[in-house]
Design a protein around this nucleic acid. Structure first.
Lengths: 197, 197
DNA sequence: ATTTATTTTGATCAGTCAATCAGATTTTAT
DNA sequence: ATAAAATCTGATTGACTGATCAAAATAAAT
């Protein structure tokens, strides 16, 4: 039986993870150092090594933390809707809204996904599979449900998931000044409706 | 008047840039070093410094090189089509095809865009504007043309450009094994047709 | 053939950083 | 109160890397 980590350990780990997120936003993956994380978290560098096996372990845990937060946020909202169509719109709305409300988290997510590599040196963005990624699974399930209930027409749910996720993801990369998130949301909802109905 | 770089200089610079692309694919932006680039290019580290001001200069020139290659490839094909609709389909086809034929170039492009930062530490992916990016401009022009000639319905060309570019870009990140690029291309063309017609 | 300019090498230097660890501090158990 | 365990610090170490530069090799000019 595994021993539960103490509350102090849990709190420290979260504190270090939050500092890592902030550091990723400020200086990026390439320049991040344990010293920088320690400074933001206001702890010593040694403490990071005490709570994590190494730097990679810190970043892996930060990635898991970020993915879970994002998924939980979206999943909770989607579950409030009943029809497949409403769920689909909620999925889009919430995904886009998350970018506004959790901007720094999104930046950190991008920084890790496009830099972290598996032990055999394969980048995460090449690994991340639409069959593993819970958000992809959720979106595909919504589309499949809609086809079952005849709300949606016939199309390949996997490919349409990729189109929608791509359209959502692309807006993350938009320059905030020249970009009207609300207008984009409306346009995307209109277009997705044309696609699936 | 500026002196033209000699042929040797031009050839060496391209050799180093091609080695950089290969290195980015192999070990990624984070781990890339002048020593690694030098090893792949089969030259000494000092030679890189002789032809480029610093490491950042190497990567900036590699980015420009990659963007130009991609744009030229797509632009040439698009210009062969006449109607706006044909151009739009060609744009999608060619963009997706480029990923297949120039896979390593695409990986290198991703590695740089999501890591390189401006002197004031702003990531390129936050800078890259749909108003500057030639590919975005090209796509928006196609959409605007189609609206002028009544081939397309009314919609916001900027936002729809983002949707289409997102759908194209997302497929770059797909695991090659479980992903049928040809089927995706067909689905995307179908969906984009529904969107713009 | 000789001088001058260009190109290339690889050793060296200075700086950075991840990881370690001996010892200090705090918490928990007895 | 005391011992044991857990938590934390910050200096140190060893490895790595970008950039420099003196000297060598090559090419071009005279």
């Amino acid at each position: 039986m595994e021993k539960q980590p103490s509350f102090i350990t849990q709190a420290r780990r979260e504190q270090i993870i939050e500092a890592t997120i902030k550091a990723l936003d400020e200086i990026g993956y390439k320049s991040i150092s344990l010293a920088k994380i320690a400074k933001i978290a206001k702890v010593s560098t040694g403490l990071i090594s005490y709570h994590f096996s190494d730097k990679e372990d810190v970043l892996n845990n930060t990635l898991v933390y970020l993915l879970k937060k994002q998924y939980d946020y979206i999943k909770e909202k989607v579950d409030e809707s009943k029809s497949a169509y409403d769920q689909l719109i909620t999925f889009i709305d919430t995904s886009l809204a998350y970018q506004g409300t959790h901007y720094v988290h999104n930046v950190a997510l991008i920084e890790i996904i496009f830099n972290a590599r598996t032990p055999d040196n394969i980048p995460y963005y090449k690994v991340s599979d639409d069959e593993e990624d819970p958000l992809y699974v959720l979106l595909q399930e919504i589309l499949q449900d809609g086809q079952k209930t005849k709300e949606f027409s016939t199309f390949d749910t996997k490919n349409v998931s990729i189109i929608i996720q791509g359209a959502i993801g692309e807006s993350m990369l938009m320059n905030q000044e020249n970009f009207n998130l609300e207008a984009y949301k409306n346009e995307l909802v209109t277009m997705v409706t044309k696609m699936v109905k």
